[in-house]
Nucleic acid binder design. Structure first.
Lengths: 213, 213
DNA sequence: CAAAAAACATACCAAGTAGTATGTGAGCGG
DNA sequence: CCGCTCACATACTACTTGGTATGTTTTTTG
């Protein structure tokens, strides 16, 4: 069953070629999963199908692995700031900020993650694929739960106000995920630029649009 | 050039069959554009390819027409409430509310619209397709501009506060568009249920998550 | 009511693609 | 230096799918 072809950590290339995961992510971002052929990915690698099928048993498996890597970076970005002595509202906005920055800096990967979320609607063909997809959605839900948990803490410690925690979190995450659609780095963009944008987004989410009375 | 095969208004069926646009929208929503074959759409119609190609010259043209219809409904939902004597913040939240309801009640159509937005990243193959896609993105931008304009009015009349109008609008629309990914109507859902959800979403957008001091 | 056009269905093809089977050169352990 | 494995490349196949060409039936029109 688990012939262990894919190590969990991302495969980094030793040659001059860019990594398979990166090439796949870029192709999937630019053309979408179905419109991307394995030959497209291979071409971007400066290689042929043989190389890809040496590491991945199928196109879907490749897609899933890209997705996993994207989610892994999401967790890595968010978990360090979710605990601490500050009020929950502070921590939650820090989480949003980190997530937004992660979206911008792993754009290709995160675009694939978003496609994966959509794909859960799509009918996965084989039972094996269905199970893997279900696994990915579990990870996805766990990620969302991180935010929900802190949001609940905020309701309890009085730093957060909302009519519905679950909806509010979905709204906020949707706003951030939407970055993968409209955000494109400008040619000479710096980290500072991205932080400014992230701060604006977090401000919108936390303060809302209504002017204070 | 314009052989006028597709009237602008949606083609409503006179037979017992569901309409082509609806069938296509449902297929595109469930499987995505590329994974949907023309035969899939035909099968859902209880017909064959012949019927579809009688009205549409290509698959992309069909997709674009579904997209147009989705955008048309968006405009129809939002424009009636965007003008009036109330402060701009009031009108803007009414627009958000209408848009959210439109997303829920035209789920299949709107899912296709979202796909279209993603697709503008994708390389459209033929020049003709590129132009049509560019046209759709113009419509899309016009729609976003409706919100921006009212938001600017709000900044001027003092009813709206934000660090960046453009970003704030993108955040809000992203949150609402994200509905197409997670929202699914429950079996016996009523209009009231949808309005409650829409109100919660608008509340999150307008009030934010931070508790008032 | 005849003829023309509309509204489809059927049959077919060329192109593209996921996946496989097999070859091959480089490195490496013994 | 020999054989074995790894890391690919090459060649090929079975199948799907967008699109077309051509029937066939129903509706409209003069």
């Amino acid at each position: 069953m688990s012939s262990e072809k894919n190590p969990l950590s991302p495969r980094i290339d030793k040659t001059g070629n860019i990594d398979i995961l990166t090439a796949a992510a870029e192709c999937f971002m630019e053309q979408g999963y179905h419109a991307t052929s394995i030959d497209d990915v291979a071409r971007r690698l400066g290689a042929t199908k043989g190389r890809i099928y040496h590491y991945y048993r199928s196109k879907t498996e490749l897609f899933f692995d890209v997705h996993r890597e994207g989610m892994r970076r999401n967790f890595d970005a968010v978990t360090p700031v979710m605990k601490g002595p500050e009020p929950a509202a502070r921590r939650l906005s820090a989480m949003f900020r980190q997530h937004a920055l992660s979206m911008m800096e792993n754009l290709a990967l995160e675009a694939v993650v978003v496609q994966g979320v959509e794909m859960h609607r799509f009918g996965a063909t084989t039972p094996e694929q269905r199970r893997t997809l279900a696994e990915l959605m579990t990870v996805r839900n766990d990620f969302e739960s991180l935010f929900k948990r802190v949001a609940y803490e905020g309701v309890e410690d009085g730093s957060i106000r909302t009519s519905d925690v679950s909806v509010a979190v979905k709204v906020a995450l949707g706003a951030i995920n939407w970055l993968s659609i409209w955000y494109r780095p400008r040619p000479a963009e710096t980290r500072d630029d991205r932080e400014i944008l992230a701060d604006k987004i977090v401000d919108s989410i936390m303060q809302g649009l209504n002017a204070p009375d």
